[in-house]
Amino acid sequence: MAVAQITQPSRRSMPDRLRVLLEAIAVTAVGVVIALLFNALRPAGLELIARTPYQILVPCPEPGGPVQIVQATESWILSARTFLVDARSPQEFDLRHLPGAVNLPYDWLEPVPEDDLLELAQSIAGSGAKRVAVYGDGGRPDSGEHLGKEISGRGIKNVFFVSGGAPAVLGSEKQ
């Protein structure tokens, strides 16, 4: 009885937050013990420490946004309201390109430099163009399509890639 009288006030005096914390630790500890026992007893229990790294298959985020296809024969490609981007190498660009086109080479192995994309986005915004047409090497896959996706991913709307790329668009320009 005397013990009860001594212990009861001391239990009441334990701060509620401390009690909650201690109980939380106790619940966690009991949960951990049950979990380890259950795992040890189950036939297909998991080893406590993995020896080999897990093969994580996380798909890389697809860079960029939506692009629309436009045929090389479409007349508005050469209009003043279209901002033209050439995705080919500088050497190919220097040989021949559409008038007014800006060269932004697309590298299959390296992402397009942030600064270049930012500069292009600013140029597009400042040009007053209503749409952006990107043409690449016309291969499969087409560098123009991929660059178009990256540009579109920067929040620029109405991005098109020219089907057939430079061979098609430069050929149609000749006609």
Binding site: F38, I49, P53, I56
Partner: peptide, 29 residues
């Protein structure tokens, strides 16, 4: 455990331990 590993935050030695124990703490709470 594979889910935890996919987050690529915890070291390998902790992944299985967490995978085994965390669900039971969730069940208890």
């Amino acid at each position: 455990a594979l889910d935890i590993a996919t987050y690529d935050i915890l070291p390998l030695v902790l992944i299985n331990l967490i995978a085994i124990t965390l669900p039971w703490v969730e069940l208890a709470t």
